[in-house]
């Protein structure tokens, strides 16, 4: 029984981390309908910024704060200079642009930080294990869950209870009308993109002690994040959270039952949803 409980905990923390990583994409893809394949690259940027910040300040916690901020600035620059030109032109220019960014970022990282796999050593406060009943949980993973829950709460609050959130939702629903009402839609979208970038950066920074930092790490998680956004339903943060948990449970219990195919489980979930519920868990069924 303990083992089942431990595996459930594994799935929960994996789900929360996956949600953290995907939340930025969910925001940008789901709410702004911008295809941001560079999300993986922003995740990687956050990881490497955290690496450098940890080295310079000798504090992991400070790195966790700085990395998302720097990534947000990077996101804002990308949106302003590059992405803005592709709005209203359909998907292809966005896909090409953001995909191209992925290649650029990979090479930049190789040049600036080398191709070596690198890591941030955890501070002693996060390096041990906690005992929950009979189960040993790595302290760091519990920390990630706490951060994730906090981020979910903050995002939901932002979008559902604040004036800013209302403006964002309004601009997404009807851009012209929102502009006519005096909302600065352009600035809002830049803000949204930066927020998405910050979330990607935070995910990257948190992932380094678990998964290490290396060029190409962005492409790996991009697929998982895209699956989560699609399965969760475009435009729904709660949907992304539920989808992350669903996918993680599938992966973890796939590992237990069918270890050889565990990494395929995420695609099995995706295929099932595409066949039977294409709008995702919480998405609205759109008439074609």
């Amino acid at each position: 029984m303990n083992i089942i409980a431990e595996q459930i905990l594994n799935a929960l923390q994996m789900g929360v981390l996956l949600f953290l990583i995907s939340s930025g994409l969910s925001l940008i893809f789901g709410l702004m309908h911008v295809v941001n394949l560079a999300h993986g690259a922003l995740y990687m940027a956050g990881a490497y910024f955290a690496l450098t910040a940890a080295r310079l300040t000798d504090s992991f916690f400070l790195a966790l704060v700085l990395a998302p901020l720097v990534t947000a600035v990077l996101g804002a620059i990308l949106e302003r200079l590059l992405l803005r030109r592709t709005y209203g032109q359909g998907m292809h220019p966005q896909v090409l642009l953001t995909f191209g960014l992925v290649f650029c970022f990979d090479e930049l990282v190789r040049i600036l930080w080398s191709s070596q796999i690198q890591i941030i050593e955890l501070p002693p406060s996060l390096a041990g294990t906690l005992s929950i009943g009979d189960i040993q949980v790595p302290t760091y993973r519990a920390f990630v869950v706490v951060v994730g829950v906090f981020v979910v709460g903050a995002l939901l609050l932002l979008f559902n209870r604040t004036h800013l959130g209302a403006q964002v939702r309004g601009s997404v629903d009807d851009r012209e009308m929102a502009a006519a009402l005096g909302i600065d839609v352009k600035l809002l979208f830049t803000f949204m993109f930066s927020l998405g970038a910050a979330l990607a950066g935070l995910g990257g920074a948190l992932a380094v002690p678990l998964f290490t930092a290396y060029p190409g790490m962005g492409s790996e998680i991009l697929i998982s994040a895209l699956v989560v956004v699609v399965v969760g339903g475009m435009g729904s943060l709660v949907g992304s959270l539920l989808a992350s948990l669903l996918v993680s449970f599938a992966i973890v219990f796939g590992q237990v039952v069918l270890a050889e195919f565990a990494t395929a489980m995420i695609y099995v979930v995706l295929i099932l949803f595409m066949l039977f519920r294409p709008q995702g868990l919480m998405g609205v069924a759109r008439p074609t």
């Binding site: 083992i3 678990l210 998964f211 992966i251 590992q255 237990v256 270890a259 565990a262």
Partner: peptide, 20 residues
């Protein structure tokens, strides 16, 4: 024997299996 799939990034389930 434990055989995690190639490309696994999170080994928590494997480690739990090992412990069990």
């Amino acid at each position: 024997e434990e055989w995690p799939a190639l490309g696994t990034s999170d080994f928590a389930p494997t480690i739990t299996n090992v412990r069990s």
